[in-house]
């Protein structure tokens, strides 16, 4: 009884909904502020994402007459639930996640690619030209970035000998030098995450100079707020996943740190987790500032010629490393 109550509290409060909401809005602010400062602007104030969210929740919610109303209304909730779930597999305050499973790296990767499919369904169901084009583009891009992302993450799994995110983190802590081997994978995963989040060099599905608002053109009010929040949480969960899988070594789990008689290990680990995720959000914002949008064919060319090849190279390095170590 107490266990299930604690589990519900975990899911609602701490690494669950409330924490992801606050940290997601904070990361959106960090992203927009870094973007503005790099363009020599002042940028939005701290409460800006929160004000946007409240305003959208209070606006009229239009459902156009011709749309498929069930798909149009409930697909955002499915995408929202799918991006929040992987946080229970990701280590936050210790080397062990909240509910680790055997092979949860694969589950997390699958759950993170559901939003792209949801965007396609939204584009299809909102019977309008621009969302349809955006949905096609989102689905086409899925074939580009998914393979390099999975190859890069799986090479960490091969090095650690487990497809459990907690085991990968623990292995990287035990052998911090092995983080140097996965640096190419880190770069590949970062670029693939940028494409997964549909941000500027790869914001082809939302290109407002070509297709108005992209997939979300017909959305307004609460459903738009849910989709924006989904984007923020996807950014947080994606960067947490990369932080756990590639930068897992920066964590304290063997031995403990205490100060004035209090055990501070979990606090230090949590702060390290925040620092790692924010660093990845910062890198994503820098990439967004540096590059202009590319065409969809250039994106597919880039991801298959360079990112996927790099992923195979990273896999090769990982296999060689395991062979030298254990062979």
């Amino acid at each position: 009884m107490m266990d299930s109550l604690a589990a519900v509290l975990y899911l609602i409060l701490f690494p669950g909904f409330v924490f992801l909401l606050v940290f997601g809005l904070f990361c959106e602010w960090v992203d927009r502020k870094v973007y503005a400062r790099l363009q020599n602007r002042v940028g939005p104030p701290l409460f800006q994402p929160f004000a946007d969210l409240i305003k959208l929740l209070g606006k009229e919610d239009i459902i156009p007459k011709n749309v498929d109303s069930i798909l149009f209304q409930y697909t955002p909730l499915i995408a929202f639930a799918a991006v929040m779930t992987p946080i229970i597999f990701i280590p936050i305050w210790s080397a062990t996640a909240l509910f680790p499973l055997q092979g949860d790296l694969i589950i997390a990767l699958y759950l993170l690619s559901i939003p792209a499919l949801a965007l396609f369904v939204i584009g299809w169901s909102s019977v309008s030209l621009y969302p349809l084009l955006g949905g096609f583009r989102a689905a086409t891009m899925l074939f580009g970035y998914e393979v390099p992302f999975i190859l890069a993450c799986l090479s960490c799994g091969i090095i650690a000998g487990s497809w459990r995110i907690s085991d990968i983190t623990a292995y990287l802590e035990m052998y911090p030098a092995s983080m140097l081997i996965v640096i190419p994978g880190f770069v590949i995963a970062l670029l693939a995450l940028e494409a997964k989040l549909e941000r500027t060099p790869f914001d082809i599905p939302q290109a407002e100079t070509e297709i108005v608002g992209g997939v979300l053109t017909e959305y307004s009010g609460k459903k738009l707020a849910v989709m924006r929040l989904m984007d923020d949480i996807r950014m947080v969960v994606g960067s947490s996943l990369i932080a756990a899988v590639f930068l897992g070594g920066f964590i304290v789990s063997y031995g403990s740190i205490s100060w004035a008689g209090t055990d501070l290990t979990n606090v230090i680990n949590f702060l390290l987790y925040i620092a790692k995720s924010l660093m990845i959000v910062f890198l994503l914002a820098v990439i967004r500032t540096l590059f202009a949008r590319i065409r969809i064919d250039q994106m597919l060319d880039f991801s298959w010629k360079y990112l996927a090849m790099g992923g195979i190279f990273q896999l090769f390095i990982a296999v060689m490393y395991i062979g030298i170590l254990h062979g």
Binding site: V42, G43, P44, P45, I62, G213, L224
Partner: peptide, 21 residues
Amino acid sequence: TPRFDVERFGVLLKGSPRHAD
């Protein structure tokens, strides 16, 4: 543009009229 930077006040340019106030 960055010279006037209205994002300070929360102003964003939106492509779709359904998103705009």
